[in-house]
Nucleic acid binder design. Structure first.
Length: 229
DNA sequence: CCATTAACTGACT
DNA sequence: AGTCAGTTAATGG
């Protein structure tokens, strides 16, 4: 398993489950084997708020087919720290043999979640090297971005943390060039991603909007790549 | 200072 | 009734 420490304030944490973003793992397989592969999966419809994964769940690997899933840790004082928000194509599950106590995965919007027995999953992967290859590539890419995250949490003030978060969450807009969009999050969720308070997020977002560094429509946040330093 | 906490408010479901 | 965003006063490192 991977061990990475996030130093936000005094807290350190261990990543007990792994997840891979935006990975259509089996998309390149010939349709014949695809059908065989899919027979190993279960598909479940999950309502908003459902806990897909909770501590102690070590035998299953999950793939998000539709919707959004947030992976978060809960600390001693009951505070949430959001580790990642997963989208369709994301793969996640527990790597450890022991029970992990503090990591949960919760559905943010009505979703379809595929699940597969962990051993079956790894058997499948070893039978299809291109899939293993893709899995590893994404894994290493994510490892490098984690370093930046950790450094930001350790050294940046709240404003810079929020700015980096905004940059990381932004996806290129289809409409305007160099324009980026962030899907709806509550201020509470944004706060929980970088370990700051909800009120501070509210204040800083208003400040950034007044400085014309971001724009907002409802819960969507827009920004130009150059305007946000 | 900078940021968090607590508390209250109005808007929106 | 519950969630969310915005504001302010008090507190602490």
């Amino acid at each position: 398993m991977f061990r990475h420490t996030l130093t936000g304030g005094q807290q350190t944490m261990t990543k007990k489950i792994w997840y891979l973003q935006q990975l259509d793992l089996f998309e390149d397989l010939p349709s014949g084997t695809l059908i065989e592969v899919e027979s190993h999966f279960h598909m479940k419809e999950c309502r908003k708020g459902t806990l897909v994964f909770s501590p102690g769940d070590t035998n299953t690997v999950y793939i998000v087919k539709r919707g959004r899933v947030q992976v978060y840790a809960v600390h001693e004082q009951g505070k949430k720290f959001i580790l990642d928000v997963l989208h369709p194509g994301s793969v996640f599950g527990d790597l450890t043999a022991k029970n992990s106590r503090e990591v949960f995965a919760e559905v943010l919007s009505d979703s379809y979640i595929c699940s597969i027995n962990k051993n079956d999953f790894f058997t499948l992967i070893s039978q299809h090297p291109p899939v293993a290859h893709k899995l590893m590539r994404t894994l290493f890419e994510q490892l490098s971005t984690l370093e930046n995250k950790a450094a930001s949490l350790a050294h940046d003030n709240v404003l810079n943390r929020l700015i980096k978060l905004i940059k990381n969450l932004g996806r290129p807009s289809i409409k305007a060039q160099n324009m980026y969009v962030i899907e709806p999050f509550t201020h509470e969720q944004l706060a929980q991603m970088i370990g700051i308070s909800r009120q501070t997020v509210t204040t800083l977002l208003n400040q950034l909007e007044q400085e014309q560094r971001i724009k907002r429509k409802g819960k969507y946040i827009y920004f130009h790549k150059n305007k946000l330093q």
